[in-house]
Nucleic acid binder design. Sequence first.
DNA 1: GTCTATAAATAGATAGAC
DNA 2: GTCTATCTATTTATAGAC
Lengths: 204, 204
Amino acid sequence: MASDERRVQILHVAMKLFAEHGFRGTTTKESAVAAGVSEAMVFRHFANKDELYHAIIDHKACNHAEMKTPLEKLTELAAAKDDYALFYGLALNALNHHRDDPNFMRLLLYAALEGHELAQMFFENFVVEIYSFLGAYIEERQREGVFRQMEPKIIVRSFIGMVMHHSLNNTLWDKEQNLLQVTNEDAARQFAEILLNGVLTKNQ
Amino acid sequence: MASDERRVQILHVAMKLFAEHGFRGTTTKESAVAAGVSEAMVFRHFANKDELYHAIIDHKACNHAEMKTPLEKLTELAAAKDDYALFYGLALNALNHHRDDPNFMRLLLYAALEGHELAQMFFENFVVEIYSFLGAYIEERQREGVFRQMEPKIIVRSFIGMVMHHSLNNTLWDKEQNLLQVTNEDAARQFAEILLNGVLTKNQ
DNA sequence: GTCTATAAATAGATAGAC
DNA sequence: GTCTATCTATTTATAGAC
């Protein structure tokens, strides 16, 4: 197999294992075996275990850049003041992304717990940005008297909380437990409805 | 130091380390040093590392039993049909608990990711129970026409999501990031307000 | 009850042949 | 590009002295 090809293959295999068992819980030997090569091959393509982890981070950081594209569409919805479409779209986009790439959430959780950079990077590049974007929109809608007066950031946290916690449950538990089976469309719709009814002024 | 006393001391020290670095990320040597004893002492009180982890689980399972006591008070609020007091009390109780014992949430997250029993135990004993309790209450309020008609479990998930995600942020990120500083009382109040406004029928 | 010393197993990483 | 063999450090766990 060509060098680049092999490198990417090991990267993907290792990413899966790191997502399942964490950085400390995955051995280079396991990664090698899962990729169908010897351990020496891992160290030929990556100087050490840390570099392998960083390569995974970079790879995921790229994926994350792709995630931002739909955010631009959300900006249009915000400009059009379409509250429901904005919150629904935000939720559905996140839920679908988490379902299609469950490894990302697990990697991120491990990174946050283990104090790796991926968590910090995600926070600075994505969480801060979405709080800023949604917070500004909410403030605007409050000035217009459409949303009730309350700390904008707590509204953001409430909504992100619904969505993220739902994905977290799907990723960590619900697979087996079957506590709440619902399509992403239904979940996004109901989260958006609850939040908007919760923050709209009574006379809307 | 007396045997029992020493055992508990090592247990507490290890629990802190396991919460910080996870099961695989904590060595018996580290636990011993942190407890101010030799590694041999750890294995005198606990047959092996697994047993040490299980002892921590049991200890936390007891703490969790204490958590249930306030739940009984919530049952009274439910009987009185005091929606706001019920949701506010539920949120404040959880937020305070998470703040006072951040190790619990970290242990639980590690356990869920690493697939240990603590996660399963917590889910079956606590999550299922609260979904059942709140779900039943919501159904009742829907029959009375006070809450809007929608899947009760999605309402539960929305509210638990707000609360848990807020605690998760406080535990994993906000300490340094300062994204949203708010007292638990304020957070609980606003979460309850958003949810109730979100699910109450318009003519309330 | 506590320690030092040490065994046994595993993990990360390298050397050198093919 | 790939492997086997090997080295070193770490980790879990035990033995035996005090």
